[in-house]
Design a protein around this nucleic acid. Structure first.
Lengths: 334, 334
DNA sequence: TTGAAAGCGCTAACAA
DNA sequence: TTGTTAGCGCTTTCAA
């Protein structure tokens, strides 16, 4: 059994209130007694019971990160950003994988409330019901936009701008027949990227061809399939903007299989800048999201919201996406 | 403020012990009162306080996973295995990144004890001091071998066998001058893989050339550098067994840069089978570790150890590594 | 500077 | 079947 404050009190011959004061560095304890108590505590290998403390203090110094799937290469860096920052500020973090499943997500949110975490960082699975996050009692910050009425603080990347940047790069590199192969239809991020795509085409007076706009899921196979459809249709684009890197890699694979020469005859750009993308054998041109920073900012926002003076207020941090021109697109002439 | 058991008791006009009984599905509560209580609880949006419960029950239904770095592609799948399994059994899991730093690891282990997690799954950073895990009060299972005297349960892959399999494959594919480019010198896993390498050479009567055995770190750059050294030395191998996939990828990059034709003139095999490895553009031959399963088994082992009847006993689960022959080695004639 | 005591929200032993 | 009560390990108020 672990030593408690009472055990120390007995051994040191003081009341346990004094032990608590000494251990917590509160003032109003004579230096001699403090030293004695600390000494005794050390000898007994005392470790404060955070559960008992949490019960009276009403906070647990615990945060939670709820994401769809840590196995998806987009999330580990965010997770590191979250964990590093939380740890620096004295918080531990629960990791929960929702498996892109709204039911599972809801279940997690519930247990996390029961465990009385101080705050939650959530990257929603899509397909979420409107009332999913209503009457929620714990501070929360979002890592992606949800279309719901509820308003939470969030840190996001400017997806419209990202989509615009991607498409503009393709155009400047001389590609003209540009397709958008996106992820899930009902994902707000996906919709915004598509919007940026349309914006860029318009600005450069390239007519929009609806047959070149596809959607599916945020997976490699979806990119492959959609690219194949495009090829089979005979209406073959000379470049593709993929809804994310994983999709883009699927497209790339399909393009190469069909003998399209990348980047000379066919350009491809992704979104996210997952670690794969920069591998020397891949060198995928993409739009970078500052993933680690997103995790970092989310924690900062959350911890600020924990302080009662600052609570309540909804803040949004919008981060800038950045073009990473690599080898799957032609060089832009200058 | 959240509703408590007392609030429910008051509203339902019963004692709060009865409420506790009803809520926990204990028998000895009249059906009518139970229904009433459940109804009231639902209306008040009651959520049990896991902290208070933990204080009296002396367990928290939480586990912790301590790994070096979730950003390292080897860990996300293990993590999923851990989290999925834990969640299925009603446990939440803390994620801690030690950054390959023994000090930080120790710090984490300490806070985790204070938070009274029920058990810990640990993949140690190397360079760990002998007494790091001694006088430790919480059940723990290890994901890699530590050279220390302390004995913990563990789930490991048979690294000697893995190293043997890798080298044997290279030999059977017709390569003769085979180098081992490993990770950190003091990593037990690394040492075991090297041992398997030597074993295979010996069995096939290929003389050991110590100049072909290199070590460094488990990073891509380390593989690149060591391969470069080999090339510069003039003593160029016709195949390399990399200490892990990331190293192997570095070696591959270097080899390609120097005009070595893979796999015809130069073969390369890794270890781990990280997600990158199977990318169509990479197709790295490697030794697979059952990562997800390792996480799963670790949790099973840990939860078993939590039950007092089964506690104490040290168990080891040794998993079989498997060859994944892909495109960076020649086909084995049959 | 120190101690006594209440109370955080819950479970469980005991009594009724 | 239900209620009373003690106690989990701690912090904090109040009094000494």
């Amino acid at each position: 059994m672990q030593a408690t404050i009472k055990d120390i009190a007995k051994k040191a011959g003081v009341s346990y209130a004094t032990v608590s004061r000494a251990l917590n560095g509160r003032r109003g304890v004579k230096d001699d007694t403090r030293e004695l108590i600390l000494e005794v505590a050390r000898n007994m290998g005392y470790q404060p019971n955070a559960i008992a403390r949490g019960l009276v203090l009403k906070h647990t110094r615990t945060l939670a990160l709820v994401i769809p799937d840590i196995t998806n290469p987009f999330f580990p860096e965010i997770t590191r950003g979250v964990e590093d920052t939380a740890s620096l500020q004295g918080y531990s973090v629960f990791l929960c994988n929702s498996h892109w499943d709204a039911k599972k997500e809801k279940l997690y949110l519930n247990t996390l409330q029961e465990k009385r975490v101080d705050g939650i960082i959530l990257h929603t699975s899509n397909n979420v019901e409107e009332d999913q996050y209503t009457n929620f009692k714990i501070p929360m910050v979002l890592l992606n936009k949800i279309s719901s009425v509820v308003e939470y603080s969030s840190v996001e990347v400017d997806n419209v701008r990202g989509g615009f940047l991607a498409t503009k790069h393709l155009i400047e590199a001389g590609y003209r027949k540009i397709a958008f192969i996106g992820g899930t239809e009902n994902s707000p991020s996906n919709a915004e990227r598509k919007e940026g795509y349309k914006l860029a085409l318009k600005q450069h007076r390239i007519p929009l061809d609806e047959r070149l706009i596809m959607s599916g899921s945020f997976k490699s196979e979806s990119g492959y399939e959609n690219m194949k459809k495009l090829i089979d249709s005979g209406n073959i684009p000379d470049a593709v903007f993929g809804g994310n890197d994983v999709i883009a890699l699927g497209v790339l694979h399909c393009a190469q299989e069909h003998g399209l020469r990348v980047p000379d005859d066919f350009g491809i750009i992704g979104f996210d800048d997952i670690p794969y993308a920069s591998l020397p054998q891949i060198q995928l041109t993409t739009i970078e999201q500052p993933k680690y920073q997103m995790g970092r900012y989310a924690v900062d926002l959350l911890i600020k919201a924990l302080r009662p003076e600052e609570g309540g207020e909804v803040k949004r941090i919008i981060l800038e996406p950045k073009l990473k021109a690599r080898k799957t697109t032609r060089e832009v002439p200058r």
